[in-house]
Design a protein around this nucleic acid. Structure first.
Length: 476
RNA sequence: GACCCCUUCGUCUAGUCAGGUCAGGACACCGGGUUUUCAUCCCGGCAACACGGGUUCGAAUCCCGUAGGGGUCACCA
């Protein structure tokens, strides 16, 4: 039987990294086993759901490299894939349960329910419905009512979880929960069961926070006589203080990481590795992850978000990218920074490729190449330390020498600079940092010769001479 | 409060199911080397089995208990 897995986001906000990881695990498991990955949009919360959130979620998933086989914009034989478009198909299941006596109408007022709950809490018991209408056999004309599931009173419901193992719940802990509201709409725990069944879902892999819903859903499957899917509950992502990951721990949306210059391969890599391990695999591609993945390798405990490791992985990925590809990926970030790169882009990017943890860093590190000479940012300490009175003439003479270099290549420039130093019996240190400061305004930057070549002859000579002008006059 | 889940270096984890290597790797951190910058790269170091009982010749691993952390308790999904 073909494995069918699903990811069911609510379009009430952006794609959270926790949701992204859930989607990732589902995707990985599907691709590993040649199954079908479907997307279901749970948009029944009409007040908070917005089409633009749905678009954003789909866009972020695509960016991360997660594709789906069935769902919005894809279609499929089990649609529609938006819950608001599925309303109406739930009533037949409700009717059946009512007819078979596994559900009943309840006319208890909210006031009474609140009173019952408060009384239970006062006694220290778990708040639950007291079953007032359970055996009243109320008919359809009983007035305003909800429909409740007639849950088993005794015994246990054991969830055979793929991640946590068998988890047993005493049925007396659960109550006759509502499956249809007084306005006629079905509730989440009921809808999920019907949808997952109708969509042929064989494995429900979702966040830890749903584990307590699972016995309810399992009971519903059993009451309806439907096959129970396999369940797997993934631990959630925690902030560095051990609490639930939230904005105060850092960015929580996939989009924020894209905007900050993380490449999707790195986020994918990090998210997969967070709470999952396969031997010593640390830096891997999606294909490698698919080949190695299994729910048995998923940790049972929550994992803390570690920006340092994500950054390291991002740097590793950036270093490994083809330079032309990397240059393309930087374009939006240059635009964001108000920089218009020219034809030197690829050569420029090559000089800073190993010097950036994010694309935003990379753009910042290469900004000096594209800045107007007058707009260079000067580090006062660097200027004071390396552009001294005696440096000016040296810089000027070296610029003249470089101007006559046989060709504008790293090896040719290196030969000219070395000869220059040898002839004057000075160390390379006397000119290397002054050149760098003149070029960049800063004391750290790309390698000397690669930088001169990437900058191009006109800019290199101009800036060296400009640096010379910046040196204080020899007589003070 | 009740129920459920969880607990190996600061962090992510291997090892646990089939008890027996100085408890392994990675990030971070510290030190050294390469690069007359920075980054990369290389070498080295620091650092953990939550606690208490048991079972056993031997326990991170099996059993019991305790503590701590997290999650869930809606006519929300």
């Amino acid at each position: 039987m073909t494995m069918r897995l699903r990811f069911a986001p609510s379009p009430t906000g952006y794609l959270h990294i926790g949701g992204a990881r859930t989607a990732l695990h589902n995707w990985l498991l599907t691709r590993k086993n040649g199954g079908v990955f479907l997307l279901r949009i749970e948009d029944t919360d009409r007040k908070r759901s917005k089409p633009e959130f749905e678009e954003q979620i789909l866009r972020d998933m695509t960016w991360l490299g997660l594709d789906w086989d069935e769902g919005p914009s894809k279609g499929g034989d089990y649609g529609p894939y938006r819950q608001t478009e599925r309303q109406g198909r739930y009533t037949q299941y409700i009717e059946r349960m009512l007819a078979e006596g596994t559900a009943y109408r309840c006319t208890c007022s909210k006031e009474r329910l609140t009173a019952v709950r408060e009384a239970a809490q006062a006694k220290g018991d778990k708040p639950k419905y007291d079953g007032h209408c359970r055996d009243l056999n109320l008919g359809p004309d009983c007035g305003e009512h909800v429909v409740r599931f007639k849950a088993p009173l005794t015994g246990q419901t054991v969830v055979a979880d793929l991640v946590k193992g068998d988890v047993a719940f005493n049925n007396e802990e659960l109550d006759d929960f509502i499956i249809q509201r007084s306005d006629g709409t079905p509730t989440y725990n009921f809808v999920v069961v019907v949808d997952d069944h109708e969509m042929g879902v064989t494995h429900v892999v979702r966040g830890d926070d749903h584990l307590n819903n699972t016995p309810k859903q399992q009971m519903l499957y059993e009451a309806l006589g439907l096959p129970v899917p396999q369940f797997g509950h993934l631990p959630i992502i925690l902030g560095n203080d051990g609490g639930k990951m939230s904005k105060r721990h850092g960015d929580t949306s996939v989009g924020a990481y894209r905007d900050k210059g993380f490449v999707p391969e790195a986020l994918f890599n990090y998210l997969t590795r967070l709470g999952w391990a396969c031997g010593d695999m640390e830096h891997f591609t999606a294909d490698e992850a698919v080949a190695a993945f299994g729910l048995d390798g998923v940790a049972k405990a929550g994992a803390k978000w570690d920006m340092d490791k994500l950054s390291w992985l991002n740097q590793q990925w950036i270093m490994g990218l083809d330079t032309a590809d990397l240059a393309q990926r930087c374009l939006p970030h240059y635009a964001e920074a108000g920089i218009e790169p020219d034809e030197r882009l690829e050569a420029v990017v090559a000089t800073v490729q190993a010097r950036a943890k994010t694309l935003v860093d990379l753009v910042a590190a290469s900004a000096f190449y594209f800045a107007a000479d007058a707009d260079l940012e000067w580090d006062d300490k660097a200027v004071k330390k390396f552009l001294k009175p005696a440096t000016g003439p040296l810089l000027r003479e070296l610029a003249d020498a470089l101007e006559g270099a046989p060709e504008w290549s790293e090896s040719a420039l290196e030969a000219v600079v070395k000869d220059f130093c040898t002839a004057r019996e000075i160390g390379l240190g006397k000119v290397a940092q002054p050149i760098r400061v003149s070029m960049t305004g800063q004391k750290a930057g790309p390698g000397l010769y690669e930088m001169l070549v990437a900058a191009g002859k006109p800019m290199a000579l101009r800036r060296m001479r400009g640096g010379a002008d910046r040196c204080p006059p020899a007589d003070g």
